[in-house]
Amino acid sequence: MKAIVKQSAKTNDIALLEVPVPEINNDELLIEVRAIGVGIHDEYFLPQNISYPYTIGIEAAGVVQEVGSSVSSYEKGDRIAFISMLQPKGGTWAEYVAVHKDSLSFRIPENMTFEQAAAIPVAGNTALKAIEPLPLRPGNSIFIAGASGAIGTFLIQLAKEKGYVVASSASKRNHQYMKELGADFTVDYRDANWQQQITDWMPGGVDAAIAVQPKTTTDSMKVVKDGGHVTSISGDQVPSERGVSVEIVSHQLDIRNELSRMVKHIADNDMKLVIEEVYPFAEGFEALKKTQTRHARGKLVLSMNK
């Protein structure tokens, strides 16, 4: 099968190669991949004991081809989207992938394409885990730092669905885009006084903030009121101050029900799924470079059908 693999521990040492189709264990599924979600960490999120060449990638969508004897959740022919990471048999950037039965996954609605489905698992899962634990009520305010990417696109809509007042940051060119998603107030992170703009808009500060991009947690804290809450998606380690609680996204939180509801909303066009571009699989290198600039609007996807 064709796969985009990391050939060695060297940075950027990736290539499109022919590799064996993985054989599955009793607790795995073999998926024929139809589309792949592109993420900034796809080349770097690797298991410790790695054998090269190693197929990169974390999320995808496809059709179940084989089912292990201890798997009861899916049958051959099912259309599913999934997250599969840190697996010794490789990641998702391939024509076939072995997926453990306990991996986060969902059935793809009939009115959703593989490309749409592949854009949801990582960004949707992360956005839900960031926003669900916040102790906010309708009418409370939230600031989303770096809100024009795939995760931020979902966060704005989820926050509005919960009745929150939303401020968000991104480059100027993305302000109208964020407002169309529901943002009530937007700032350009390049402006020296963007924090003052938010505290002028919401005197005393917002009730909570979610820092999507790395190194934005400290700055986000400055626009949160005393005793408020900050969640860091990137994992920034920042000490608390003024009674502001600072937490990293909990990957242990079970949001499967919420994710299923999100998928239905997207399929029914009640929530926007923004895909900036769909690349042919062979152009995965270009998609990876684009997403690593952190300037993609919404999600980038690879398609096996282009």
Rank of each mutant, 00 (worst) to 15 (best):
V224M: 11
V224G: 09
K225H: 03
K225R: 15
K225M: 03
K225C: 06
K225E: 00
K225P: 00
K225V: 00
G227P: 05
G227Y: 09
G227D: 12
G227Q: 03
G227H: 04
G228W: 03
G228D: 01
G228C: 04
G228R: 01
G228H: 03
G228V: 07
G228K: 05
H229Y: 15
H229S: 09
H229L: 04
V230M: 03
V230P: 09
V230S: 07
V230A: 07
V230W: 14
T231F: 03
T231H: 05
T231S: 13
T231W: 06
T231M: 15
T231E: 10
S232R: 07
S232C: 00
I233H: 00
I233V: 15
I233N: 05
S234H: 13
S234Y: 06
S234D: 11
G235M: 02
G235Y: 01
G235D: 11
D236T: 08
Q237W: 08
Q237K: 11
Q237P: 01
Q237I: 12
Q237T: 14
Q237H: 10
V238Q: 00
V238R: 10
V238P: 01
P239E: 06
P239R: 02
P239K: 05
S240N: 01
S240W: 01
S240T: 09
E241F: 12
E241M: 04
E241G: 05
R242S: 05
R242A: 09
R242D: 15
R242N: 13
R242Q: 12
G243I: 02
G243K: 07
G243T: 09
G243P: 06
V244R: 09
V244C: 01
S245G: 11
S245D: 12
V246Y: 13
V246C: 14
V246D: 05
V246N: 08
V246Q: 06
V246F: 14
V246K: 02
I248W: 00
I248Q: 12
I248A: 06
V249W: 06
V249H: 08
V249S: 05
S250Y: 12
H251S: 04
H251N: 09
H251D: 11
H251C: 02
H251V: 01
H251G: 07
H251K: 15
Q252R: 13
L253Y: 08
L253M: 14
L253N: 13
L253G: 03
L253E: 09
D254A: 10
D254K: 09
D254N: 14
I255R: 07
I255W: 06
R256N: 13
R256Y: 01
R256Q: 13
N257Y: 14
N257D: 15
N257C: 01
N257R: 11
N257L: 08
